[in-house]
Design a protein around this nucleic acid. Structure first.
Length: 471
RNA sequence: GCUCCUGUGGUGUAGUUCGGUCCAUCAUUCCGGGUUUUCAUCCCGGCGACUCGGGUUCGAAUCCCGACAGGAGCACCA
């Protein structure tokens, strides 16, 4: 990773998600980059919940615990400090009042559309000339509920003639009467991102901010505010927008909507790019870490492929994933003369995991339907066979030619199983048999000739449920 | 419209600060080969790029100007 600019003697970084849902693959970039920099510089990361919007992106009360846990999983260690903006409201409101008193802010009662035209024409709005006592009394009305949603907003007094329209007297706090899921109806005035974040970064002693470049104007807005308060703004780095070919963007709001509409089964839905879904499938946090570190923090807008992450994941898990046989769409073949023969297959072909999987043959075996079109096959780790009329005849125990090697299962080792695979808008259910050898729920196995999958459920004496990871 | 950011192979990325050592790094994909009783892993090899046009210079991926392309902000979202 590139060196951080500025003084790095005691680095404080922060990761500030909105808890309006669990973390997505997109958020994982922020977790990884910030936590890796903290590791590199022996610094700290503040996990801050930016939960000051009760209306457009309302917080989800479960998401706080989810995110804290997901952060720990991704970073490999918990966040050093955890704060909720909603717990820090008194501080923000106090700063607002004092900035109003000092003339750094004013209460603007123009309707949004009206202010927009002032901004465009670089004209002062009438509220701008109010004195401090008037502003303070309007502030009181905002907090008392005399003024209702949309009737007033606190603005930071910058300069209406600034070339960048986004910076002209930007809004700092607004009225929200919708109750907050964590703190209820205690507050009627809530800070907006730029104000809340500016204050909290200062309060936490944040030294470096790494954020999306869509927030570049945020930096500029906040820098103007810091100048008024005589504070020094943290060093700031930016990354560009990321899309993943397979998923597109990572809008938490639209995922939430798709779940509420019933198009998705929940945050763990295999088709969603949430950390929950990725973990459910069996991704290793190391793969995500390696991926984001490799990408670095360039300001280019990029579109990456899950293939890259999958490749890193294979490397991370191959040595620890035991092999198992999975026979999709099984075809039953009878086999004679080998009823009590034992077959041993390694748990891992390179011996990374010592030991073997022991089978006893019995009188019938299963092979994949797609393999059964061939009349001569080699059953892996066992024998060359020829197939006719649902019967397998052993031709040789040793490998005698170059016939295809296939995975298979003796009837006695075959456990009914279904493999769930996300395929575009659908979740395919591949039915078959899974090798019933020391199966452990939660484990990721490599299904020979199929790919990696995580065992999710094992019904008592019944079927197994697997979720697809990748090939 | 205003403001801002970015343009290196299919996808990412290094190099751009202080122009030459860059006929451009690495990863991944793809193609070929090897190891392997998995179409996995591993190993080897290969294809493939500096957006375009001017300018400065002995020399430009690197500096300057312009064009073009992509993206973002101008929300009482984060």
């Amino acid at each position: 990773m590139k060196a951080l600019p500025g003084d790095t003697s005691s680095v404080v970084l922060r990761f500030a998600p909105n808890p309006n849902g669990p973390l997505t693959l997109g958020h994982s970039r922020g977790v990884v980059i910030n936590s890796e920099y903290a590791k590199l510089y022996d610094g700290k990361v503040v996990l801050r919940f930016d939960d000051t919007d009760t209306k457009v992106k309302p917080p989800l009360s479960d998401a706080y615990q989810w995110i804290e846990e997901e952060y720990g999983w991704l970073a490999g260690r918990p966040a050093d400090i955890v704060v909720r903006a909603s717990d820090r409201m008194p501080i923000y409101l106090e700063y607002a009042a004092s900035m109003l008193a000092d003339g750094h802010c004013y209460v603007c009662r123009c309707p949004a559309a009206e202010f927009r035209s002032f901004r465009e024409s670089k004209e002062d709005c009438p509220c701008r000339s109010k004195d401090a006592s008037e502003n303070l009394s309007d502030w009181k009305s905002m907090n008392d509920g005399v003024l209702v949603e949309g009737e007033a907003v606190v603005r930071v007094r910058t300069d209406m003639t600034l070339p960048n329209p986004a910076l002209r007297d930007w809004p700092a706090l607004r009225i929200q009467h919708t109750p907050h899921p964590m703190v209820g109806e205690q507050y009627r005035v809530w800070p907006l991102l730029d104000f809340q974040s500016a204050i909290e970064d200062y309060a936490q002693g944040v030294t470096h901010i790494v954020r999306g470049k869509d927030l570049m104007d945020s930096t500029r807005k906040q820098t103007l505010m810091y100048e008024k308060l005589g504070w020094e703004y943290p060093e700031t780095l930016y990354w560009g927008r990321v899309k993943v070919h397979e998923f597109g963007g990572f809008s938490t709001s639209s995922m939430r909507a798709s779940i509420e509409d019933g198009d998705r089964d929940g945050w763990e839905d295999l088709r969603l790019p949430t950390i929950q879904s990725l973990r459910r499938r069996g991704f290793d946090a190391r793969a995500l870490r390696d991926f984001w570190v490799e990408l670095g923090i360039t300001q280019k807008d990029i579109s990456v492929s899950m293939q890259t992450i999958e490749s890193l994941n294979s490397r991370a898990i191959d040595a620890v994933a035991e092999r198992r046989s999975f026979v999709a769409s099984p075809v039953r073949l009878s086999i004679e003369g080998y009823e009590s023969v034992a077959v041993d297959s390694p748990r891992h072909p390179d011996g990374e995991i010592p030991g073997s999987r022991g089978w006893v043959l019995g009188g019938a075996i299963y092979i994949q339907k797609s393999d059964s079109v061939s009349s001569s096959l080699r059953l892996k780790e066992f024998a060359d066979i020829s197939i006719s009329d649902s019967k397998a005849d052993v031709e040789s125990l040793d490998r005698s030619d170059n016939r295809p090697i296939v995975q298979w299962l003796p009837e006695g080792m075959a456990r009914e199983a279904v493999l769930f695979m996300p395929q575009g808008e659908e979740i395919a259910e591949v039915e078959g048999f899974l090798e019933d050898f020391e199966l452990q729920v939660g484990q990721v196995y490599q299904l020979e000739r199929v790919g990696f999958a995580r065992l999710e459920r094992l019904a008592q004496g019944g079927g197994a449920e697997l979720v697809w990871l990748h090939s």
